[in-house]
Design a protein around this nucleic acid. Structure first.
Lengths: 187, 187
DNA sequence: TTCCATTTTTGACAACAGTCAAAAATCTGC
DNA sequence: GCAGATTTTTGACTGTTGTCAAAAATGGAA
């Protein structure tokens, strides 16, 4: 739980009192490999902090599974669209390893936001960070070739390459598994 | 200015008092076609509300201009990365039509955030909306063909097609101008 | 209206990436 | 350690898109 607290404090300063309330709001969840955290069609009522393990978000397109993001240690994960709008998720989130997570419900978070101005600010800053991170990924994905994207992944996110099956990485990069295999053998 | 107020109120309820402070914080800016709002390498110190007109964000990649987003009436625009982190912008923002904007500086916004909890919440909710909008665009851009992306643009954002030169749209969709021209002639 | 600059279209060709299919390698549970 | 399932690689072929170059169309200013 110290990990979660550290991550929160890295985003924005939190008073002792708010720290206590925040930590009390999270519940530990331990799940085995391949389990689903969120399933398509169901509304996502929790936000999770991933303490240990890794997972992927994917959706179905023309019968194929498209993995569009990965989560690792110290990430906050959920289907953001579903969690924010409280509408059914279009994606699935599945554990790629047995994982330890900390969960907070939408209601509890809303309550904290009302009661602690610091939490409101913390969340605003967290969204800022997440926004510009997504923007960076978007720009890179659209305007670089498959090989360039893989090379960049190797440099900036080598743990993905080490911990994730090639097929998932291929769809994450927006290319076929065969092409990725060839790109890799060329390097 | 009523347009700006309406847009803010659509995001989240604002008290009369906060409304006054908010509106007083914005300054009108009128700029002609082709003018730059933000230039690559300079740090962006303002957030803008676009009341009338349209503009594009683009950056240079291997000597080519890549337009990666457009702004139209009622959009909040800036180089978010530069504005949030206060580091030099990697992108340019250029007016595609003569435009009327309302500008707020980073310092003024920071002050408002400190003094009005409502503004903090409004901004948090705005980021939520912008985040899930970007997420949707990301998913579509990476996993659909050029033709599909253009068809979707026609359906969901026909004003882009009507108001923006084809060359800008092509790079927005991540394809060459020639390919877009052929896609269009086939429809 | 006319001229010039800009934007869009068309053609020919090359390169990159996708698909289908099968073989090879790797991982898992017993 | 073995058998079966899963994952990765390889091969042959196809199709889409990019590039370069030139022609056609469009738009704006005088």
């Amino acid at each position: 739980m110290q990990q979660l607290l550290k991550r929160l404090k890295d985003i924005h300063h939190i008073s002792e009192e708010t720290q206590e309330h925040l930590l009390a709001a999270f519940t530990q969840v331990v799940l085995p490999k391949n389990e689903y955290l969120i399933e398509e069609g169901r509304t996502c009522r929790h936000l999770y902090f991933l303490e240990q393990g890794c997972l992927r978000g994917f959706y179905n397109l023309d019968g194929k599974e498209i993995t569009h993001w990965f989560g690792f240690e110290n990430d906050f994960v959920t289907s953001f669209h579903s969690f924010i709008t409280q509408t059914p998720a279009v994606e699935n989130i599945q554990l790629m390893e047995g994982s330890v997570l900390w969960s907070i419900s939408k209601e509890t978070l809303t309550k904290l936001l009302d009661e602690h101005q610091e939490v409101e600010r913390l969340l605003r800053i967290a969204y800022e960070k997440y926004y510009i991170r997504l923007e960076g990924r978007f720009v890179n994905s659209q305007f670089r070739t498959a090989t360039e994207r893989y090379e960049q992944l190797l440099q900036e996110n080598s743990q993905i390459v080490e911990r994730v099956p090639l097929g998932y990485i291929a769809s994450y990069l927006g290319i076929s598994q065969e092409t990725l295999s060839r790109v890799r053998s060329r390097l």
